[in-house]
Design a binder for these strands. Structure first.
Length: 111
DNA sequence: AGAGTGACCACAC
DNA sequence: TGTGTGGCCACTC
């Protein structure tokens, strides 16, 4: 039923590699996978990813560290709950110290 | 084949 | 500092 596309798999793989307690942004993933992929595509991929429990979509936020995708979870608070459970502090749907918690695949993985 | 849409990002005012 | 607009690529109707 759920059709999966090739680039979705790439996005999932990166998201799965995000260390616990760390977060990343759509743009960083897009940048890491290649210029072909735009932040919108990553967000769109996440839309399909939320159905897969393997993909920690809660660790992916926008470039401001804002939980823009929380509305797409089972409950609006679920995303925050999951992040807080991993030690990430959140206030008003915004990740505190996002700048230091951000996990940039193009830097961390470094190929 | 064309138009609309999307869990975004960057620039301009 | 905050709002508005365009652009990006892929998918659906």
């Amino acid at each position: 039923m759920v059709k999966q596309y090739s680039f979705f798999d790439d996005v999932y793989e990166v998201v799965k590699l995000i260390p616990k307690g760390r977060v990343t942004s759509y743009g960083l993933i897009a940048n890491y996978l290649g210029t072909k992929l735009t932040a919108r595509m990553v967000g769109w991929a996440m839309n399909a990813a939320h159905g897969l429990s393997d993909v920690p979509a809660h660790r992916v936020v926008n470039r401001n560290g804002l939980l823009t995708g929380k509305a797409h979870f089972a409950t609006p608070t679920m995303m925050q709950e999951l992040l807080e459970a991993e030690g990430v502090e959140i206030e008003k749907d915004q990740i505190l110290g996002f700048k230091e918690l951000v996990w940039d695949p193009s830097k961390e993985l470094e190929l």
